[in-house]
C-alpha cells in the first residue's frame, strides 16, 4: 500500500510538472482516522498530500462530471468502471483523462472497525500489510483487514481497473466464487409483508440529507427529481412514504449504471444499508441483460439501447 502512495505522488508530480494534466484528483489523509477525503491538486509541489490505503472508499469519479481540460485521476476497479460510465454518458471524454490504475484489495468499513473495538473512540488506525492496528485511549488492538472489509468490497469481482493509462502494480487476483447477491435473494424470498417491513425498518432512520446521492458519481443531473416542484415527485419531509419514494427512485436512476462502489453506504450518516436498493437492480441487470455497468467503453448500457430486432423476446 505504502509503495502505491509513493508511486501516486511521483506520477502526479510528474504529470503536473510536465503539464500533461492540469489537475490531479486523488485522496488525502483525513483529519479523523479512516476518513480519507478526495483532493484536487494543481501544483506538483502538493503531490505529497496524496495517499492510498484501505480508507479510500469515496468515489472520485464524482469530481469528473463536465470537467474541462486534462485531468489525472487515480482509479481502482469500481472507480474505473464509473469513469467508463461517465464517458458513455458524455460527462467526460477519454482524451481528457490520464488514469492511474490501482489494483485494489478492498476498502475497510469504518463502522465495522469501530464495532470491532466495542465502539470505543479511535485515535489512530495504522495499516500494516493485511492487518489494521487500532489505537485509542488505553487500548491497542490488531484487526484482520478481511474481517472489516466494506460489504461491497467483500463480494467485489472487479478489483482491477478496466481502463487506465498506467498501472501502479500487477493486477490482483479477482475474487471468484463470491456470492454477490446472497442478501438480495434473501429479500426476494420474503413475503410482500415481510419485504415491506424490512424496507420500512431499513429507511426508518433516514434524515433525507441526500449524502448518498451526493456521494454517488451517477447523480449529476442539473436538477435532481427530489428538488423538482413541478411536478413534485416526492414530498420534502421525512414522511416514510416520501422517504421510500426517494430511495426507490434513486435506485431506479442507478439501474444498469451502478458499479456497487459503496460510496453511498459509506457516507450515510445514520448507517442505512442503501445498497440494498441498488443491488437488486444490479442483479436484475445481470440476470436479464447479462449486463454489468462500466466494463466496456464501446458498449451502450443495457437500459439505453433500443433495437427492433433485440434478441430478448420479451422486448420485441
Amino acid at each position: 500500500m505504502l509503495e502505491y502512495t509513493k508511486k501516486i505522488q511521483e506520477i502526479a508530480g510528474r504529470l503536473l510538472s510536465e503539464g500533461k494534466v492540469e489537475v490531479f484528483i486523488g485522496y488525502a489523509k483525513g483529519t479523523v482516522p479512516m476518513m480519507n477525503h478526495p483532493v484536487v491538486i494543481r501544483d506538483s509541489a502538493k503531490a505529497e498530500t496524496l495517499v492510498w490505503d484501505s480508507h479510500c472508499g469515496l468515489n472520485l469519479c464524482n469530481y469528473l462530471t463536465k470537467m474541462k481540460g486534462k485531468i489525472g485521476i487515480v482509479a481502482n476497479g469500481c472507480n474505473s468502471r464509473n469513469i467508463v460510465t461517465h464517458i458513455l454518458e458524455n460527462q467526460i471524454t477519454r482524451e481528457q483523462l490520464y488514469i492511474v490504475g490501482i489494483p485494489c484489495e478492498g476498502m475497510v468499513d469504518h463502522r465495522a472497525v469501530k464495532r470491532a473495538v466495542g465502539n470505543r473512540e479511535l485515535e489512530e488506525v495504522i495499516e500494516e500489510g493485511d492487518t489494521l492496528v487500532v489505537k485509542g485511549r488505553g487500548f491497542r488492538e490488531i484487526i484482520k483487514k478481511t474481517d472489516v472489509l466494506q460489504r461491497n468490497c467483500a463480494v467485489c469481482t472487479h478489483r482491477n481497473p478496466v481502463i487506465y493509462d498506467e498501472m501502479l502494480g500487477p493486477p490482483v487476483e479477482e475474487q471468484t466464487g463470491v456470492d454477490q447477491f446472497k442478501d438480495v435473494r434473501m429479500i426476494e424470498e420474503m413475503t410482500p409483508e415481510k419485504k415491506w417491513g424490512f424496507f420500512t425498518r431499513t429507511i426508518a432512520k433516514c434524515i433525507r440529507c441526500y449524502a448518498c446521492r451526493n456521494a454517488c458519481p451517477l447523480c449529476y443531473c442539473p436538477t435532481c427529481f427530489v428538488d423538482e416542484s413541478r411536478p413534485q415527485w416526492v414530498g420534502k419531509s421525512n414522511d416514510p412514504t416520501d422517504t421510500m419514494t426517494f430511495h426507490i427512485l434513486r435506485a431506479y436512476h442507478c439501474a444498469g449504471r451502478c458499479t456497487d462502489c459503496g460510496a453511498c453506504e459509506r457516507v450515510c450518516p445514520v448507517g442505512i444499508p442503501v445498497r440494498q436498493f441498488t443491488k437488486k437492480l444490479n442483479k436484475d441487470a445481470l440476470e436479464f441483460f447479462s449486463w454489468e455497468a462500466g466494463l466496456a467503453i464501446d458498449q451502450r448500457p443495457a437500459l439505453d439501447t433500443y433495437k427492433p430486432n433485440d434478441y430478448n423476446e420479451f422486448i420485441r
Binding site: F225, P231, W233, T241, D242, T245, I248, L249, Y252
Partner: peptide, 10 residues
C-alpha cells in the same frame, strides 16, 4: 416512468 407508478401508489 417508474415515478408515475410510485406517484400512483403514493
Amino acid at each position: 416512468s417508474p415515478k408515475f407508478i410510485l406517484a400512483a401508489l403514493r
